[in-house]
Deep mutational scan, measured.
Amino acid sequence: KSSGQLMAEWGLDDVDYLFSEEDYHTLTNYKAFSQFLRPLIAKKNPKIPMSKMMTVLGAKWREFSANNP
């Protein structure tokens, strides 16, 4: 499932962030990516359980990696 599908299924607000060329150069591993995106997700979904946060971050990382030029 996509991150958007997961968040909709769980009734969470998705984070629409348009990644720049620079993001693809600086966010080169999962740790850097999650440190960048986790606060954005948490801000829109302050009560998100950690298990769902990790699942969403994993899905967003897969999508980000697939779109990386």
Rank of each mutant, 00 (worst) to 15 (best):
G4R: 14
K47H: 11
L6M: 13
F64S: 01
T28K: 10
E22I: 08
P39E: 11
D13V: 15
G11C: 09
L57T: 03
K47T: 11
L6G: 03
Y24V: 08
A42K: 15
T26L: 13
G11D: 08
P39C: 04
S2F: 04
Y24I: 07
V15C: 05
H25L: 14
L57R: 00
Y24C: 09
K47V: 05
Q35D: 13
Y30E: 10
S2Q: 07
L27T: 01
K31T: 10
Q35T: 11
E9S: 11
D16P: 09
K1P: 02
K1G: 04
S2Y: 07
H25S: 13
Y24W: 09
Q5F: 04
K44G: 14
L18S: 12
N67S: 12
G58N: 14
E21F: 06
K47R: 13
K1E: 02
F33K: 00
F33M: 00
E21A: 11
M7T: 03
E9K: 13
W10P: 02
L18R: 14
L40W: 12
D16W: 00
I48M: 13
P69S: 10
F19W: 12
S51Y: 04
M7S: 00
N45A: 02
D13Q: 15
K1S: 05
M7W: 02
N45D: 03
P49E: 11
A8D: 14
A8Y: 12
S3K: 02
S20L: 07
G58C: 11
T28C: 10
F33H: 00
Y17S: 03
D16V: 04
P46H: 02
K1A: 01
E22L: 07
F19L: 05
A32L: 13
D13H: 14
F19K: 01
V15Y: 04
M7I: 06
Y17R: 04
H25G: 11
Y24D: 03
F19Q: 07
H25C: 13
G11L: 09
L18Q: 15
H25Q: 14
L6E: 04
L27G: 00
Y17H: 10
E21R: 09
Y17A: 04
F19N: 01
S2L: 07
F64L: 01
K31Y: 08
K31Q: 12
T28M: 11
D13W: 11
V15Q: 02
P46W: 03
L27W: 00
Y17L: 08
G11F: 07
A32G: 06
G4E: 14
E22Y: 11
L57P: 00
G4W: 13
G4T: 14
D16G: 06
G11A: 06
A32I: 11
L18A: 07
W10K: 11
M7F: 06
M7P: 01
G4A: 15
S2G: 06
T28H: 11
A8V: 12
S3L: 10
W10Y: 15
G11T: 01
W61G: 01
Y30M: 07
S2I: 06
L6Q: 07
